[in-house]
Amino acid sequence: MKEKTANSVTQIRKKKWTVNRWTLLFMASLGVVFLLVFNYAPMYGIILAFKKGDYVIDIRKAIFESSWVGFKNFEKFLIDPQFKDVIVNTLCLNLLSLLINFPAPIIFALFINEVRNKTFKKTIQTISYFPYFLSWIVFGGIILNIINPQTGILSDLLMRLKLIDAPLNLGRSEYTWGVLIVTALIKGVGWGSVIYVAAIAGIDTAMYEAADIDGAGRWGKMWFITLPSIIPTITVYLILSISNLLNSGFEQIYVFQNQINLGASEVIDTYVYKYGVLNKRYSYTTAIGLLKSIISLVLLISANFISKKITGKGIY
């Protein structure tokens, strides 16, 4: 009876334009106004990609009055000597990150779940979150000092252990990808595992009891119960990572980039920052940004499509 009245109250309110509904509309439109200014207006700014707006100081002029040039800005990027490096670095770094930094928190969660001592488990987890709280400026700044070939302790330690003969200069381009992947791992694996630890905690314990009766070992339970149970969570995060494939953590790369490793560390984001923000080549870099946005969107849609085909679950 109570439910019925509640329902009819909502139904009446759904049809009429009451004060409450106007208030809600006002509240929600605050968000829309924000998005119009900070998200949709920049989307309109994309027209710069097809215009001659490089080096134009007056932005209004650049956007509204400069002449159309078609796809010239995109062509300029294709023939740029750095084009190959930028694209290869962006794609490879992110693919590496997808292959290593994406599964790492899952493995971390699966194994931390197997630790029996509760206090030890809690301590390790808490420690592993800490680097996430630090900025890349701080964390990267410390790491750069540790791996410094002259004054840092990494070379010193490896030489004392007789693993290397001469100081190791990790600032050189052949090591850049390795340094970026490993530091991202140290900083992010603990934090990334939280979501999976939470998912594992939600698994019905009856399944493990049943497996015990069937005589399953710890590996068996991990492989046949824990992992399959968190597949939905993994899928959602995998799709999100794929759509993020071209967003190569600007701050991290900015910190580790130097003149020597530029060939291995220049990615779309840093390139756009340098040529757009610092050198005022607005049209040229808007075109590159647009290219990136479109590829990301295509990746997201395909990842979601494939996921729906295989697992029957997508993010939208």
């Binding site: 200014v37 998200n39 309109y44 994309i46 710069l48 932005i59 923000v277």
Partner: peptide, 24 residues
Amino acid sequence: IYLINIFTMFFSGGLIPFFLIIKM
């Protein structure tokens, strides 16, 4: 309204147009 919100998660104008809006 929901769609207007969600769309911004999938597509963005990029760094430079945002930078120019901030200036404008």
